[in-house]
C-alpha cells in the first residue's frame, strides 16, 4: 500500500528534476555564446589585496585591455607601475626602474603568462578549460563562476576563484582569488567598454 503511494511521488520528483535546466553545462554554453560577441574590451580595475599582516587592503589600480583571441595588456598604475603584455603567444613584463620602464628578464613574465592565458580564456567564456580547476556556476542577478582546485598541488596557494560575470553582456565584473582564511585578492572592473577599437600598438608598445 505504502509502496504504491510513494511511486507516483517519485515519478513526480523525477519529472520535476528532469524539467530543471541541466545545471552547469547549459550555463557554460550560454556564457561561451555570449562571450563570443566580445572581440575587444577595455576597463579600469581596482585590486584589493587582503592579508593578515595588513590592517586594511592594499589597493592597486590599473587598466586592462583585451583583443580576441588572446591579446591582453594588464597595466598597474599605482602603487607600483608594471605592465604585462601578452600577444600572439609571447608575454613580456615591464617594471618601473629609475623612472623608466624596463623589461623584466627574470621568470616573472612566464609566471604572468600562465595567469593571462587563463584570463584570456575567461574573456572567451571558457571557464571549464583548465583541468586544474573544477568549475561550477550559480545564476543570480549576476552569474557567479566558482573555480576550485581539483588536486592538492594548489594547497596553501589558492582555495578558490570566484568570477562574477554580467548577465547582460557576459563581461567579467569581479575576480576574487581566495588564498586562505585571511588572504584574498579582489579585482573589480569598471568603466568597461565592449568592442572598442584598440590600435595594435596597445599590445606591442609601451607609452
Amino acid at each position: 500500500m505504502r509502496a504504491k503511494a510513494v511511486r507516483p511521488l517519485s515519478i513526480l520528483l523525477l519529472l520535476f528534476f528532469m524539467a530543471l535546466p541541466a545545471a552547469g553545462a547549459d550555463d557554460f554554453d550560454r556564457l561561451r555564446r555570449d562571450a563570443s560577441r566580445i572581440s575587444s574590451l577595455s576597463a579600469d580595475f581596482v585590486q584589493k589585496k587582503s592579508m593578515k599582516i595588513l590592517s586594511k587592503p592594499l589597493v592597486s589600480t590599473g587598466k586592462f585591455f583585451y583583443a580576441a583571441p588572446d591579446s591582453i595588456r594588464w597595466e598597474y598604475v599605482k602603487p607600483i607601475r608594471s605592465i604585462v603584455i601578452s600577444d600572439r603567444g609571447t608575454t613580456k613584463r615591464y617594471i618601473a626602474s629609475g623612472g623608466k620602464m624596463i623589461e623584466d628578464k627574470t621568470g616573472g613574465a612566464q609566471a604572468m603568462k600562465i595567469v593571462l592565458d587563463e584570463v584570456a580564456g575567461w574573456m572567451k567564456g571558457k571557464f571549464t578549460a583548465n583541468p586544474t580547476f573544477a568549475a561550477s556556476v550559480r545564476e543570480g542577478p549576476e552569474t557567479l563562476i566558482v573555480l576550485t582546485p581539483k588536486g592538492k598541488n594548489m594547497a596553501g596557494l589558492i582555495e578558490k576563484i570566484e568570477i562574477t560575470v554580467s548577465r547582460k553582456d557576459a563581461v567579467v565584473k569581479t575576480v576574487r582569488i581566495v588564498e586562505g582564511a585571511a588572504a584574498e585578492t579582489r579585482i573589480d572592473f569598471s568603466h568597461t567598454v565592449v568592442n572598442p577599437v584598440l590600435p595594435p600598438a596597445v599590445f606591442q608598445d609601451l607609452p
Binding site: 598597474y76 608594471s82 617594471i95 609566471a111
Partner: peptide
C-alpha cells in the same frame, strides 16, 4: 634591476618582533 616588489613590514621594537611580506606588483 632584477625585481620590483611591494614590501610590508610590521616592526614592534618593544617586543623586538618583525613580520614581513613581499608581494609582486600584481599581488602574488
Amino acid at each position: 634591476t632584477r625585481a620590483v616588489m611591494i614590501g610590508v613590514t610590521v616592526a614592534d621594537p618593544a617586543a623586538r618582533t618583525l613580520s614581513c611580506a613581499l608581494l609582486s606588483p600584481e599581488g602574488l
